[in-house]
């Protein structure tokens, strides 16, 4: 892959955030329950602009739920969450505005099977932002180049491998020019080879300065790419620090988790 050919992501400043050193995402004592079961028991977490934060932990530790709170897919009962200048506990929160700033990629790709790759990528910019037809084509070229799929513009999702579909899903999010990208176990459905191509795409985004939160089971990847690794356990942030904390766990739980994961 020719690194020089990949356009850099233009980062825009949110009006609500310009001129301040406010973090892009700030959880403060956030609590969430499903009925009587409390799944997030007071999360405190900050992500500043340009940072890559990896959420790791066992299934059921609350990491995906925490991530899904960030773009309003899950609501919470107590605490505060601010994302890109939006207060997610506000009654008059405009979710559609928030979601133009926050992209998300899922484990199951969720591409629209009846649309071509280009149509998948340009649908939201055209319908939500009113981007014109020719401009949308250019946009599709740009973001598909970013994920290394320039030659698949006219393909349908079912003609692509899982890894390629996942990269299209990433391109589809990028086309909205988000300030923050969320990745929810995006490689869990892929074999090691396809996992590699998706992880390299994410690495390049990180190098381009995209702010990202990712839930992942790829420990080596979390260690190398993340500025901050957050180990979640039983609905709490159990241990957090730079990637190298995985080499020297302070808690028994993280030691056990890393021991079983690497």
């Amino acid at each position: 892959m020719n690194e020089a050919a990949i356009p850099r992501i233009q980062s825009k400043d949110s009006p609500a955030m310009s001129g301040s050193s406010q973090p892009m995402v700030r959880f403060h004592n956030l609590r969430k329950s499903y009925g009587a079961v409390e799944v997030l028991k007071g999360i405190d977490l900050e992500v500043s602009s340009g940072q890559v934060v990896a959420l790791i932990g066992r299934s059921g530790s609350g990491k995906s739920t925490a991530l899904r709170c960030v773009n309003g897919l899950e609501r919470f009962q107590a605490g505060e969450l601010h994302v890109c200048g939006y207060d997610l506990s506000a009654k008059d929160l405009n979710l559609r505005n928030l979601r133009q700033d926050v992209g998300i990629v899922f484990q199951s790709y969720n591409l629209f099977p009846h649309l071509t790759v280009e149509q998948n990528v340009t649908l939201a910019p055209r319908k939500v932002k009113g981007v014109g037809h020719t401009e949308a084509r250019e946009l599709a070229k740009e973001v598909l180049a970013q994920v290394g799929l320039s030659d698949k513009v006219d393909a349908y999702p079912e003609q692509l491998s899982g890894g390629q579909q996942q990269r299209v899903a990433i391109a589809r999010s990028l086309a909205m020019k988000p300030k923050l990208m969320l990745f929810d176990e995006v490689t869990s459905a892929l074999d090691p080879e396809l996992t590699g191509e998706v992880l390299r795409t994410i690495e390049r985004l990180a190098a381009d300065g995209m702010t990202m939160m990712l839930v992942t089971h790829e420990m080596a990847f979390a260690r190398s790419v993340a500025d901050q690794v957050v180990f979640m356990h039983q609905g709490r942030v159990w241990e957090a620090g730079p990637g190298d904390m995985l080499l020297d766990p302070q808690t028994v739980e993280l030691r056990q988790f890393v021991g079983s994961g690497l």
Binding site: N97, R99, G103, F106, F112, A124, V128, R172
Partner: peptide, 17 residues
């Protein structure tokens, strides 16, 4: 699949769109 509707939601498409 529900995931597609979730994806459409997350791309800021309105329910009608």
């Amino acid at each position: 699949p529900r995931g597609q509707l979730e994806a459409a939601d997350c791309l800021a498409l309105s329910p009608f769109q």
